[in-house]
Design a protein around this nucleic acid. Sequence first.
DNA 1: TTATACAATGTAAGCGTTTACATTCCCGAA
DNA 2: TTCGGGAATGTAAACGCTTACATTGTATAA
Lengths: 341, 341
Amino acid sequence: MSHSKPPARVTINDVAEYAGVSTATVSRVINRTGPVAAETEQAVRAAIAELNYRPHTAAKILASNRTNTIGLIFPQISGYYFAPLLRGIAACAGEYGFDLLIYSVQEGSAPREPFTYPIGDQNTDGLVVFTEGLPEQELRRLCEIAFPVVLIHCTPPEGLRIPSVTIENKASARQLVDHLIEVHGRRRIGFLAGPKGHEDSYWREKGYREALAAHNIPYDPALVGVGGFNEAIARAAVEKWLQEGVEMDAIFTGDDDSATGALAALTAAGKRVPDDVALVGFDDIDLARYLNPPLTTVRAPVEQVGHEAVRQLVRLIRTGEAEPLILLPTQLVIRQSCGCP
Amino acid sequence: MSHSKPPARVTINDVAEYAGVSTATVSRVINRTGPVAAETEQAVRAAIAELNYRPHTAAKILASNRTNTIGLIFPQISGYYFAPLLRGIAACAGEYGFDLLIYSVQEGSAPREPFTYPIGDQNTDGLVVFTEGLPEQELRRLCEIAFPVVLIHCTPPEGLRIPSVTIENKASARQLVDHLIEVHGRRRIGFLAGPKGHEDSYWREKGYREALAAHNIPYDPALVGVGGFNEAIARAAVEKWLQEGVEMDAIFTGDDDSATGALAALTAAGKRVPDDVALVGFDDIDLARYLNPPLTTVRAPVEQVGHEAVRQLVRLIRTGEAEPLILLPTQLVIRQSCGCP
DNA sequence: TTATACAATGTAAGCGTTTACATTCCCGAA
DNA sequence: TTCGGGAATGTAAACGCTTACATTGTATAA
C-alpha cells in the first residue's frame, strides 16, 4: 500500500486533445447538451474510455451551479424506521434522476463553524430534513434564499413556510385510545411520552387527551409518565407506577419500544396483560407480533413518508411549489394486548 | 412558495471587501491557516456573520484538492444491520473530523454513464464500500490511482490489495455447529444458505462444513438448501424438506431471518424445537430472544465493524497504510432453540 | 545603526468545468 | 449564382475558492 501520489488527474482538456476536439464538444457529449456529429461523439467517447476520464464533480457544480443531487440531513442514526425511511427516500430520488447525499449530524459534536454543513445549498438542489436535523437559524437562512427544503416528522418553526410530511399521529392515537375505551371499557389509561420535545410524541399525547375528553374521562397527570421511546426507561416508569400503587387498567405507550418495556414491568409485577392492564403501542415494529401477548399497535407507512418527502422536494425544486403539509394515513393493527381475542 | 431566484451568492470577495481585507486573509481566518492579527480576525468574522456568508464547498474542493470527507457506498438499504453499521461509521468519521457522504446504489437503476458515481475520488478523500457496492471495474480503477478504499463484509477482487473488515463468519459458524454436535449430539444438520454469492453466507457454510468434517460427519447435499436470508424463502425451503421426508435433527439457518421462517415451518409441521429439530441462527436480531423457543444465535459487533472500517480508512488516507484484513470476533448467544436449558 | 527574521497581509494564478458567443461549413431556396 | 439558416464546433470568460509568492512592517540581535 504505497503512498505515492497518483499521476495528474485526467481532465476534460486531456480528453479534448486526445479526441482532437475542443472541451466544449466534450462537455456536450458528456451532458448530451447541444448537437454533436455522430462521428465526433464516437471519438470523444473513445477518448474518455481510453483515458479513463471522470468528470470532476466539484468543478462541474462550480461551473454549472446545478448539482442534480438532493441532500438528507439526519439528527442521529437509529430507530427501526431509519432503514425503511432511507429506502423510500433513496428510491424516490433515483426515480427522479437525483443523486442522494446524506449527512448525519453527530450527537456529541460541537455545532459547526458558523453553520457550515457538508451538505447544503452549495452542493445540493434541495434538502430533506429529518426532525431536528437543522437548527432553526439555518432553516431560516435557507428559507430566505428560497432554497428548497422539505421537513419530515417535524413542524416548521414559527413563520417559516416549509413543506413537511409526516404521519397521522394524533388521529391514530385517538383511534387507539378510543378503541381501548369503547371496545374494552377501559377508563384509567396511562400514557408514556417520548423524549422531551419529540414531535411525534407530542401529537400522540394530544390524540390521547382528545380521546379521553371525548369520553368524558378526566385527564389525570398521575397517569402520564415518560417512556422516552425506550425499553428500559419505559420499564422503569411503569415499575414506578406499580410501586406507587397508581391504579390503571390500560397503558398507551407512545411507541412499541416503550411497550416492550412496559410489558416486561407489568409481567414481572404479576399483572396480566390484557386482563388486568391492556397495552397498546405505536409503530408496529417487527417485534410487536411476537410479544406475548402480541401487541396491538399502529403501523405507519414509513417508507412512503420518505418517498413522499422527496416527491415534494423535487416538485419544489422544479416548480417552486409544494404541498404545505402532508399527513400520511396509518393503519390500526389490532392484536391481543388490547384485549381483543 | 415563490420561485424567484435568490439574490446573488455571497462570496469570499464580498466578505473581504466588507471587512477591508484581501480574500487570502478571509480564507486564513476561515481555515485557521496562517497567522492573522486578532483585530483583523474579528473584523472578518463580523463580516461573515453580517453577510451571512457560507463557503462554497465545490469551489473549496476544486481549489484545495482536499475534501475532508469520506464516502460510503451501499448496494441497497435494508437489513437489521444497516442502522448500527451506519451509526458506527458516522460516529467514527466524526471522531476523526471527517464529514460523511453516503450513496446508495439503486437496485433497479441501470449502471451509471461510464461509471460515474456521485461520490468518488473527486469529492471524497476515501471510500468505505459495503459488500458489492461497487463493480470490480471501478474498484480496480480506484486502486490504480491509489485512492483509499476500505471494504466491508467483502473480499477484494483477485489481485487487488484493498483492506477489508468483516466478522468471524467461518469461526462462528463452526462454533455453532460444533455446539450442536458436541453438546446436543446432533448429526443430521441442515444448512440454509443466503442469497447467491453472499459473502457472509459463503463463509458460514464453510464453517458448517468444517464442523461436520471435524466430527467425521459426511457432508450431505440434500441437507443444504437456500434460505436467501429471508423468512419466506427459508420457510418454503424447510417445508420442502419436510414434505420430501428429509431426515434431520437440527438446522443451522444462515441468519436469523431464515431461522424465523424455519421455525414457522417446523412448528406448523408439528415438529418440536429443539426436541425434534434443534435450530440455530446467526445475527442475533432483536426478535431472536422473543421467538419460541428463544433462538440460539451469534451476535456480531455490527457497529464496531463500521467504526473499524473508518478507522482503517482514515489511516489509509493519512499514512497510506492499513490492515489488509480485519476479522472482528463474534459472540455465541446460547438460548433454548439449540436444546440448552 | 544595520541586518535579520518573522508576523501580517496582499496579489494573482490556478483548480476543472460549463456556456454564451463567435465562427465555419454546408444545404436548399430564391 | 447568391444568400439565409441551421448544424457543428471552437474560444474564452466565468464559477468561488486556495495558496505560492511577494510585500510590508516591526522587533531583535549584532
